[in-house]
Nucleic acid binder design. Sequence first.
DNA 1: ATTATATAAAACCATTTGGTTTCATGTCAA
DNA 2: TTGACATGAAACCAAATGGTTTTATATAAT
Lengths: 120, 120
Amino acid sequence: MSSSAQKHDVFQAIADPTRREVLRLLAEKERPISEISAHFPISRTAISKHLHILSEAELVSGKKVGREKIYHFQPEPLAKLKQWLSFYEQFWNNKLLKLKHIVEDGDDGLNIVEKGEKSK
Amino acid sequence: MSSSAQKHDVFQAIADPTRREVLRLLAEKERPISEISAHFPISRTAISKHLHILSEAELVSGKKVGREKIYHFQPEPLAKLKQWLSFYEQFWNNKLLKLKHIVEDGDDGLNIVEKGEKSK
DNA sequence: ATTATATAAAACCATTTGGTTTCATGTCAA
DNA sequence: TTGACATGAAACCAAATGGTTTTATATAAT
């Protein structure tokens, strides 16, 4: 199966602070909805909706056990985030790449002045 | 200054696909609003609002040059995202940590067998 | 069998979001 | 100085978001 008609992706799923906290709780260990919602000032129903959204993004998955629904954390979608991030890591890890870009773009770079440097 | 009363953080800022694309364009090189909006099917005003949000999250910054406003990419806030992500990397990079958790939680772990590993 | 528990589902609501259109303003060019 | 251009700002709008309350259903416990 693995429905690709997902309305919520990982970027949206982690945008909400409550959902991030839910994720952290589930990363620790799997828990039923009521246990999760006990950690928050909002209603159980609200938490249930958040779990639904996390579930759409495949960051969590729930299995019904007796009358409880036990949710557990699924890290896979975060790889996509990591991948997205990796593109931008150049910009803060490797300052030399800035120069490289300037060269490749055909800019002669003569008047480029880095922060705190004098231009002449 | 550096107002800390920011309504939008980096998590929310990158939740929107259009904003992610704007970021990518600005990571390539700095550009005025009109040039950015030329890449999208939506109005210049809409793009301007997205830039405002990215700016609140300090992912971009704009300087006025003549009648144009030139925006450029600022990678710093992404470090926060990277930091957030790093916590979860254990879960897909380092499978052994699973065992560690089991041990620390007091679970005897006797019948736990990792994928593809021999139990002894 | 009855009651309490755990969740699901639906209706509802205020605010935010992502977009639009319209109007105003500052700057460059002729 | 008169347009044209680039942006800003405001009013407006539909849909999505994040919450609520109410009602229903399945399971567990007594």
